[in-house]
Design a protein around this nucleic acid. Sequence first.
DNA 1: GAAGAACGGTGCCTTTTGTTACATAAAGCG
DNA 2: CGCTTTATGTAACAAAAGGCACCGTTCTTC
Lengths: 211, 211
Amino acid sequence: MSAFSINDLHDVFPFFTREEELRELYDSAIYKVVPSRTLLIREGQYLNSLPLVLNGSIRVFRQYEDREVLLYYVQRGETCIMSLTACFFSAPSQSQAITETETEILLVPTDKIFEWQKKFPAWNEFTLGTFKCRYEELLSAFSDVVFQDIETRLKTYLREYSLKYRTKKVPLTHELIARELGTTRVVISRLLKGMETAGKIKQRRGMIILQ
Amino acid sequence: MSAFSINDLHDVFPFFTREEELRELYDSAIYKVVPSRTLLIREGQYLNSLPLVLNGSIRVFRQYEDREVLLYYVQRGETCIMSLTACFFSAPSQSQAITETETEILLVPTDKIFEWQKKFPAWNEFTLGTFKCRYEELLSAFSDVVFQDIETRLKTYLREYSLKYRTKKVPLTHELIARELGTTRVVISRLLKGMETAGKIKQRRGMIILQ
DNA sequence: GAAGAACGGTGCCTTTTGTTACATAAAGCG
DNA sequence: CGCTTTATGTAACAAAAGGCACCGTTCTTC
């Protein structure tokens, strides 16, 4: 019934090298295709399984009153540390997760997490590595906010988007970028207009084109 | 030669409940007393052991050009996630660690880390829990910086210091607080003077007294 | 193709934060 | 005690960022 094979798994999660590990992942996880813009995890929800992403993108964020903070995106071959700790410590999720696009995921039952954590060093390394990576990202974002002005952060944001998706065309609205950077639309519009006038970018409706 | 017993260990690291675990920690770790203001870990250094703190306090921070960012303090019963990942992934440390006071530590050899990660679920839970905790802290600091003005952050900072050390007397200079919050001394002096005038605090040289 | 929604541009003003420069005061020390 | 260092106070100004209002443009949708 699943639209994927063990070979696919090996491509997506190369840290699982042993046949035994792949087999167990294949057998115990539930395959699921989730439509775009679907709320996967609500705040306060208890989790009984951990999502691994095969394809697509999940946006994980936290709500603070009326503002929200982007934590990270979970993409192909990745997992979600907030879910992992919620599972591991049987605690309610403090963040929310929503699919950005149609997303294929594997749901691993909580008891398997405990088991693998002991049994499969590769899995252990995967989770620890994910944590390390997310921590570094957040730290980098943190020091950017502390030490750099908004224009610099905006330029960095655009550059990283461009690198990540290998395109010079950034299909985001000013409003959206403003929310990501924790500021307001007017500020972003002003800065982008300045950059356009300076010839550093071009703009279309809903689209910023880097040089 | 060590100035501590297995019983001490149990008090400091209550997550190690089994005799076997405590025994192995006791036997394999090296006990060390480090004087105040000693640089324990330099940037770029490779680690072959992980510090656990018995008493005292280690300040872990990262340098960005001429600025520095405080990551966290490692205190009694805690360990350092930056060291953990540096050990685990055999990578050079990207941060620095310095003792704040005279500090008693246990140094656990890297190979034990790998072993315990598999063998002792309690240890696994400890490391994951530490990561979760540090991530939450950083996230909280991040959203404070994004959403709150400096005065609010300063008040939060003082309140938390007060809670942490259970005292109304905060023995920090304006300069030091400014560095922690990523701003300048003048700004902090201005705000504190304002708070003093408003009767919310009192000030002595090198000391802020909360009401 | 008309109405409404979403998107972006901009002027004007306020608030917040940073910078520079200098003054005063307390602590440390020979 | 006088000298030096460190900590703090403050004025004056500059720069960064935010808030509000209102506009025109471009999509969507019916």
